[in-house]
Simulated assay, not measured.
Amino acid sequence: MSETKKTKVLIIGSGPAGYTAAVYSSRAMLEPVLVQGLQPGGQLTITTEVENWPGETEIQGPDLMVKMEAHAKAMGAEVLTDYITSLDLSKRPFTAYGDSGTTYEADAIILATGAQARWLGLPSEEKFKGFGVSACATCDGFFYRGREVVVIGGGNTAVEEALFLTNFASKVTLIHRRDSLRSEKILQDRLFKNPKIEVMWDTTVEEVVGTEAPLGVTGVRAKNVKTGEESIVPCDGFFVAIGHAPASELVKDQLKLHSGGYVWVEPGTTHTSIEGVFAAGDLTDHTYRQAVTSAGMGCMAALDAERWLAEQD
Rank of each mutant, 00 (worst) to 15 (best):
N224E: 09
L34P: 01
A305T: 02
P234V: 06
K256L: 13
L122K: 02
A245Y: 09
A70I: 01
T166C: 02
G296M: 07
Y144S: 09
E184F: 08
L163H: 09
V172R: 02
M297C: 00
A112Y: 06
V217A: 07
P16V: 01
G281N: 02
G55S: 12
F143R: 07
G219W: 10
T287G: 00
K223P: 01
D63Q: 11
V277P: 05
G237K: 09
E105S: 09
C299P: 08
R177Q: 14
E306L: 09
T203Y: 05
T269S: 13
Q188K: 13
T293N: 04
L165C: 08
G260Q: 07
A245S: 14
D88A: 01
D253H: 12
E31I: 08
T95N: 05
F131S: 14
W119Q: 12
G260E: 02
N194L: 04
A22W: 07
V277R: 08
A22M: 08
E51P: 04
H258A: 14
K256H: 12
L80E: 03
N224I: 07
P16D: 03
M75C: 14
H71G: 00
Q312S: 00
R145M: 05
I12R: 02
N52E: 11
S124Q: 06
T166F: 12
V225T: 15
M68K: 02
A247G: 00
K5G: 01
D236Q: 15
T138P: 00
Y97V: 13
R289Q: 14
N194Y: 06
S90N: 14
D82E: 11
L181P: 01
D285G: 05
G42S: 01
V220S: 02
V208G: 05
V292P: 02
P16N: 10
I175C: 11
A305Q: 07
I110V: 13
Q60T: 13
F142D: 00
A302G: 03
Q290R: 10
G76V: 04
A295R: 03
L10K: 06
A169P: 05
T227I: 02
T47K: 06
E78C: 05
K171V: 10
T103P: 07
G216A: 15
A247K: 14
I232S: 08
T272W: 02
L64N: 00
I242Q: 05
K129E: 02
T270D: 10
Q60A: 14
A135D: 12
K73C: 05
F278P: 10
G13Q: 07
V50H: 07
P195V: 09
D202S: 15
